[in-house]
Design a protein around this nucleic acid. Structure first.
Length: 271
DNA sequence: ATTCTCACCTGCGGGC
DNA sequence: TGCCCGCAGGTGAGAA
């Protein structure tokens, strides 16, 4: 489910509330994608300094160490003064002096991983290869263009891989490519400078707009304070196979790329 | 070194 | 109504 906008909206929804909180208990449920990497009791007494985001990971800065949280495909967080008894898909609770944080994740592709520091081996395995942050100044056009030229993949696959730019998942890759007028199957290295420029802007635009909209709620995403997103109402192509393009009314098409669905307008988007 | 396929897990909707 | 199949917002590991 969660791409950069959903993760960022989640972060904003509880970062202030949890900052400064001391951990009272950490209660893992069913196994997630990776083991926690420490004894749950080791976390007791540590203070949550703040919550940052790197790509689709949330980083809870502890004193000392940090927790890496990933929502996988179906995860969502909830932060509240008190929480009801865990349900069947609640797989991690972090009780603190300022409230309780809970990960709900039916498919359990998500993760909660402890790292002693951001540069340690555990954190680097997950974060070390991540590309540029698209909503920061680090997302430089020149570096983006160099990365595209060096790739032999389709532009859609390259965006999803996260090695060049992070946070763009299936929905926002489709939407950004539509806004930029580029076919998802186009080879990254074949894009013209004007297309690269448009794509660079489109990625920032679509992600920023989605954050403003509270993210996309396709199944049951909500932020940590229970708010649903409504970006899904502004989607141009994702999930709209057969429906008219918002620009030219041509039916939107779907193509499978690497076991993922790509949606595009055959008239508005070009190689 | 890149690129591609697979695997992880559960739920839901469509077709029969 | 119920079963089976395919599909779903991600991504590291391992194979090509």
């Amino acid at each position: 489910m969660p791409e950069l906008p959903e993760v960022e909206v989640t972060r904003r929804s509880f970062a202030q509330s949890i900052a400064g909180a001391k951990i009272l208990a950490a209660l893992p449920g069913k196994p997630l994608r990776w083991p926690l990497g420490c004894a749950p009791t080791d976390l007791v007494g540590r203070v949550v300094q703040g919550v940052r985001r790197r790509g689709k990971y949330l980083l809870l800065d502890l004193e000392p160490g940090l927790l890496l949280l990933h929502l996988g495909m179906s995860g969502s967080l909830r932060f509240a003064p008190t929480l009801p008894a865990p349900g069947p898909h609640d797989h991690f609770d972090l009780h603190t002096t300022q409230g309780s944080l809970r990960l709900n994740d039916p498919r359990r592709f998500g993760a909660v991983v402890y790292a002693s520091a951001e540069h340690d081996a555990v954190a680097q395995k997950l974060l070390g290869h991540l590309g540029m942050e698209p909503l920061s100044d680090a997302f430089e056009l020149a570096a983006f263009e160099r990365g595209l030229q060096a790739s032999r993949s389709s532009i859609k696959q390259l965006l999803l891989a996260g090695r060049l730019v992070v946070g763009v998942g299936n929905i926002y890759a489709c939407e950004a490519l539509f806004l930029a007028g580029i076919l998802p199957t186009a080879l990254a290295c074949n894009l013209l400078p004007v297309q690269v420029l448009r794509l660079h802007g489109a990625i920032r635009q679509v992600l920023a707009k989605a954050v403003d909209s509270g993210g996309s709620t396709l199944r049951n995403f909500s932020s940590a304070n229970g708010q649903s997103g409504h970006f899904q109402q502004q989607v141009h192509v994702y999930g709209r196979e057969g429906q008219p393009c918002h620009t030219c009314a041509t039916p939107v098409r779907m193509v499978r790329q690497v076991q993922r669905s790509s949606y595009y307008c055959p008239v508005c988007q070009h190689g």
